[in-house]
Nucleic acid binder design. Structure first.
Length: 475
RNA sequence: GUGGCUAUGGUGUAGUGGUAACACAGCAGUUUGUGGCACUGUUAUCGAGGGUUCAAUUCCCUCUAGCCACCCCA
């Protein structure tokens, strides 16, 4: 801690009690001199990484399975990309974007989502000349300046899949499946909410009908929704107010206003979902907040989340976006994004056991300089063995400390090399559970480890008791 | 952006108008060649700033952050 290093009255003596820096760094419950994370942003600590790692691994696997190639796009993009792509009127762009001018006066923004960037890359690199669709997988931090609360942070992580250059509804269905599979393979039960908002034409017709309907009932609407009537009528369907909810039931439904093409497309998607036996619900009331969506839209709600308050992911088709961002041709596309933070939160909530992949099996302890040197070399050899993992603490001298550590690491075996063994050309191998140790020939260490670990597996003793019992904390 | 609740060691909590107690974790030691047990020591200017008071961690105000709701979304 900073405090320990700093003499107690340092700041007082030097008259620096209230520097500008102190004011800036003053955050939350921490001491004035301590610098902490920016509001809404957080550290993901080593002990929590296994959840994130597990999610990323599944995402990578799904991407590979379905042939989606990883793309990394910059975190910083021109503001214009999102203003044009996501939509100027959207909440995300209008009030939630981290936007600023850099030293050169360029207007930049931390990306609030990735689809626009991926489409930008597609256009910028002339990928319409590759075989279509071009399939992308991405993963990384997004930024939105919202008021933080559970499941909502100013820096949050998403992974997603985008397929650009294909209009076939089979693509929509497959993407929906991919998102669902991601959750499923992590052990999270979810229900897919599907809807179609049609192409811009259908939507215009629908919007008119909707306004007509609600205008006649405007007295019953909440104040917000009355405003929405002119600004964004589709959002009324999203309102949680009881009265508005009631009106919703008899409101005109988008699906009735789809033109033949859009209707056919949607029916096909549904047909495929049925065939794949996916748990979906036709939800005419999901309205996504980004302007680029057309036709199919969908969200993933955890089974216990009836209102979709914390959707785990969502996506849809965006047939107009490529053109909008400067693409020469009308290019259909479809994609989805999943929220890592919410998925991880859900995993912790339902107490999913995630085993630590980096759990060591063996610890190497040493006593004395000569032994330390010898065992350092041995370790370099053993750490390259693929079938077990070795830990050590050569920076510690006392055997007690080292065994203590071995115990905390929950290794099954510990190798111990001291003066005596060094002289004899042997090494001790200690079974941590039983506390029994045996002297073996130094050169046989590796095969002896293998032999014993195998025995552990056979005995079913490889289920470590109480390993990694999860604690839920909300940092 | 609006509203509500909250803020005590690393973590989880107790407590009082006279500068703080407990549990766990950490480190050191009892044991300089042996972990899991036990014991000992050690770890907090009680979120920040200001006010009331002889005295504030305790009362009041402001700020900040966290949580929750609205809004919105992943």
């Amino acid at each position: 801690m900073v405090k320990k290093v700093t003499p107690k009255n340092n700041s007082a003596k030097s008259g620096l009690i209230k520097t500008e820096e102190d004011k800036i760094n003053k955050r939350g419950r921490r001491s004035t001199r301590e610098i902490v994370t920016v509001t809404g942003m957080r550290d993901i600590l080593p002990q929590d990484q296994r959840y994130w790692h597990a999610v990323k691994k599944v995402a990578e696997k799904i991407a590979a399975d379905y042939g989606y190639g990883l793309i990394d796009t910059p975190v910083l993009e021109p503001v214009d990309l999102f203003v044009r792509g996501v939509g100027k009127q959207t909440e995300v762009v209008e009030k939630e974007m981290f936007a600023f001018k850099d030293q050169a006066g360029d207007e930049l923004a931390l990306r609030p989502e990735a689809t626009a960037s991926v489409v930008r890359a597609y256009v910028q690199h002339g990928m319409l000349n590759q075989s279509q669709p071009v399939k992308f997988f991405y993963q990384g931090p997004m930024f939105r300046h919202e008021k933080p609360q559970s499941g909502r942070h100013r820096q949050f992580f998403q992974f997603g899949f985008e397929a650009i250059g294909e209009a076939n509804p089979a693509l929509d269905a497959q993407l929906i499946l991919m998102g669902w599979n991601s959750l499923n393979e992590l052990g999270i039960e979810s229900v897919i909410q599907v809807n179609s908002i049609g192409c811009p034409n259908c939507r215009d017709n629908y919007r008119k009908e909707l306004v007509k309907y609600y205008r006649s009932k405007s007295k019953l609407l909440c104040e917000n929704c009355r405003k929405r009537l002119t600004t964004n009528p589709l959002r009324i369907l999203d309102c949680k107010e009881e009265e508005c909810q009631k009106l919703k039931d008899e409101s005109p439904q988008v699906l009735d206003y789809l033109d033949d093409d859009c209707k056919k497309h949607f029916m096909k998607v549904i047909e495929y979902l049925d065939e794949l036996d996916l748990p979906y619900v036709l939800n005419p009331f999901i309205v996504r907040g980004l302007d680029y969506y057309t036709k199919t839209i969908f969200e993933y709600w955890s089974t216990d989340d009836q209102e979709g308050k914390n959707a785990l992911g969502g996506g849809g088709r965006y047939d107009g976006l490529v053109k909008l961002l400067g693409g020469r041709e009308e290019t259909p596309a479809c994609g989805l994004a999943m929220g890592l933070d919410r998925i991880v939160a859900k995993m912790r909530e339902i107490d999913l056991e995630i085993k630590d992949e980096f759990q060591p099996d063996v610890f190497i302890a040493q006593i004395g300089e000569a032994a330390k040197k010898k065992v350092m070399v041995l370790y370099e050899k053993l750490r390259q063995c693929e079938d077990f993992r070795v830990a050590q603490a050569f920076y510690k001298d006392s055997l007690k400390n080292q065994l203590d550590l071995a115990n905390k690491l929950k290794v099954k075996l510990t190798l111990i090399l001291g003066q005596k063994e060094f002289g004899d050309g042997t090494i001790l191998i200690r079974d941590m559970e039983g506390g029994i140790q045996e002297e073996i020939n130094f050169s046989r260490a590796e095969q002896e480890i293998r032999k014993r670990l195998l025995k552990y597996k056979e005995n079913g003793a490889n289920v470590p008791p109480e390993t990694n019992k999860l604690k839920i904390d909300n940092n």
